[in-house]
Simulated scan of single mutants.
Amino acid sequence: MKRPFVIFYALIIYAIAELFWWGYMLVRLQPNRFGMIMGEGSVFIVVFLVGAISLHKSINKERKLQDQKRNFLLSVTHELKSPLASIKLYLETIQKRKLEHSQILDFAGKCLLDVDRLNDMVENMLLAAKIENSSYTFPKEQFNLSMLVDGVVNRLQINRCDFKEQLINAEIEPKVEITGDKFALTSVVTNLIENAVKYSSPCAEVNVRLFRKDGEVYLLVADHGIGIADNEKTRIFDKFYRVGSEDTRNTKGTGLGLYIVKQVLDKHQARIEVKDNVPAGSVFEVVFG
């Protein structure tokens, strides 16, 4: 993309230089029309520069979008290959070795976790596509949000570090009911918790709280991870945007999760705010009015 920009700027410089040259020649031929030539030339230069700057911004925006799409495709490829390779390895082990029944159940359970991971990613991509082309209607119903959050927490719970310590620490007020799209809000809760786990260090605790306060329902997801810079807090909900640069980013992801979260919550007239956690990490606060 550098070569087109060089040609673009070269043409602009050439056009402006030609404009000055022809202006100079006209002034020499008709010195009595100096004021008119300078006025019209100035207007032309201003319009030309405004157009050139607008075109530059459009090209630069398109270039960044293409880079994000390319990174998205690379991320999706990696996200697909990793669980598929894991599933294949477990199944080949079951097929080729004589294992105890408990080992087979353990491997099957791990395969199912990878299948859930693939399913979440596919649902994210489908939901994002439907939201973008306005084909998703967000059907509303009254349901138990406490059970939904508890189910997501149990599915994403990781307990490999210490049998006495849970990775996800949940405080869920019982029988919290809201009216909304249960499928889409499941995606919201899943994405928020998965993000907190993804951007935390191994075995670091993630805190999930659901409670009522002053007639509103609050969902808080807090981690002790890398945190989010202030200048990125307003951009993390953009489609394909991911925290950090491509050179320094280590975490996996497609850049769709928080985009879906914001779009779904907007359709439910719910608010989401990103705060700094103490001493490190981030807190995502969702409020249903």
Rank of each mutant, 00 (worst) to 15 (best):
P4Q: 07
F5K: 09
V6G: 00
A10F: 11
I12V: 12
I13W: 02
Y14P: 02
I16F: 08
A17R: 06
E18Y: 13
W21R: 14
G23A: 07
M25E: 14
L26R: 12
L29G: 04
Q30V: 13
Q30A: 08
F34G: 04
G35Q: 05
I37Y: 03
E40W: 03
G41A: 02
V43S: 03
F48T: 10
L49P: 01
G51V: 11
A52P: 00
H56M: 04
N60H: 10
K61Y: 08
K61H: 09
R63D: 07
K64G: 03
Q66P: 00
R70Q: 08
R70N: 12
N71M: 07
S75M: 02
V76K: 06
H78V: 07
H78C: 10
E79M: 07
L80W: 07
P83M: 03
P83L: 10
A85G: 14
S86T: 11
Y90K: 14
Y90G: 13
I94T: 03
Q95R: 03
L105W: 02
D106T: 06
G109T: 07
K110T: 07
K110F: 04
K110Q: 15
L113P: 02
D114Y: 02
D114F: 01
D116Y: 12
D116V: 01
L118C: 10
M121Q: 15
V122Q: 07
E123R: 08
L126K: 05
L127H: 10
L127A: 09
A128L: 03
A128K: 04
K130T: 09
S134N: 14
S135K: 14
P139N: 14
K140T: 13
K140D: 11
L148T: 06
V149D: 07
D150W: 02
D150M: 06
R155I: 11
Q157K: 14
I158T: 09
R160L: 15
D162Q: 11
K164I: 10
K164D: 15
K164Q: 12
E171Y: 06
P174V: 09
K175L: 15
E177I: 00
E177A: 05
I178A: 00
K182N: 12
L185G: 06
S187F: 00
V188F: 04
I193E: 02
I193R: 00
E194L: 01
Y199K: 03
C203T: 01
A204S: 12
V206L: 04
V208Q: 03
R209L: 09
R212C: 04
R212T: 10
G215W: 13
L219A: 08
L220G: 01
L220K: 09
A222C: 06
G225L: 08
G227D: 13
A229E: 15
N231S: 12
E232H: 11
R235N: 12
F237R: 12
F240Y: 15
S245A: 08
D247K: 08
D247V: 09
T248N: 14
R249M: 14
N250M: 13
N250S: 12
T251M: 14
G255Q: 06
G257M: 07
Y259L: 03
Y259N: 05
Q263V: 00
D266V: 06
K267M: 04
K267V: 00
K267C: 01
H268L: 04
H268Q: 11
Q269A: 09
R271Y: 08
V274I: 15
K275W: 10
A280I: 10
A280L: 05
S282D: 07
E285K: 01
